[in-house]
Design a protein around this nucleic acid. Structure first.
Ligand SMILES: [Mn+2]
Ligand SMILES: [Mn+2]
Ligand SMILES: [Zn+2]
Ligand SMILES: [Zn+2]
Lengths: 140, 140
DNA sequence: TCTAATTTTAGAATAGTTATAATTTAGAAT
DNA sequence: ATTCTAAATTATAACTATTCTAAAATTAGA
């Protein structure tokens, strides 16, 4: 908490109550929330919060490498405060996104005809699956 | 051409000139166009074409498994008439999307803690890189 | 040729996101 | 503690991509 404040002060951000609430919500969060998910959560404590504040802060965090945009859902963007390289699995029924911590960098070597054309800079795997909960529901 | 018409008739679609133009544009297309890309192309031949027609037809094609939505660009959806499993590499400078034809299915086995929670149904790898053209431009 | 069902179209509606400008606030300087 | 200014928040407008609606036009089969 004290560290959270210090951390973001060092990054040149003024600490406001709304902002701090957003930081706290994201800290260690593995739910891959959308802007709206964040908005709804902060609204409980700060009912006057504006959507713009959510987007402004996500922007500030992105610029400072504290949050990553996930492009896995074509409807809306999701955000991930875990900036360590990792992958995701999304439930094709309920769209729940879970982390996949496994290093596939050796396994996914690009074929030569691609490296002749592109200088590789990274990769991300989207796995698709059906989560436990949805398996049960669908099983009927 | 004759086959194209027969193919879609069999799938229960009436053949209109606009529709046929869209099918022809997509046939074998590897550019991963957005709805707007398609619209702009068809507009050259059918200036009165509506955006709704583009989306209607993409919908019809999706339902019939003739086109896939690609979720790699958070701004807009892209479409791929190649429904064979394959992956993509996107240029982080100009957003060009190229195909990566390589079977990684053995290489990207999910860890157990995931398969205990999800029944896997597929995967897709987004590679990131810098294309030749952008390498030259950036080199200055 | 006639007709019913489908498709196209213009335009309105909606959802997600970004921009604008007035007001408020954080935190540094006094 | 008070003052000051840059930065942050807010309401709201604007914008972009996509979906919906309902009327008009077209297709394909009888
Ligand atoms: Mn994650
Ligand atoms: Mn492709
Ligand atoms: Zn699920
Ligand atoms: Zn490029």
């Amino acid at each position: 908490m004290k560290e959270l404040i210090a951390k973001y002060r060092e990054k040149g951000l003024k600490i406001t109550p709304q902002r701090l609430a957003i930081f706290k919500f994201l800290e260690g969060n593995t739910s891959h929330p959308s802007a709206e998910d964040i908005y709804r959560h902060i609204k409980k404590t700060y009912p006057a919060i504006s959507f713009a504040t959510i987007y402004n802060n996500l922007q500030a965090l992105k610029e400072r490498g504290e949050v990553l945009e996930i492009t896995i859902d074509s409807q809306k963007r999701h955000y991930d405060p875990n900036t360590e390289p990792h992958h995701h699995i999304i439930c094709t029924k309920c769209n729940k996104i879970n982390d996949v911590f496994h290093d596939y960098s050796e396994a996914v070597r690009l074929p030569n005809y691609i490296t002749e054309e592109f200088k590789p800079v990274g990769n991300h795997i989207d796995f698709y699956g059906i989560c436990r909960t949805c398996q049960k529901k669908g099983g009927r």
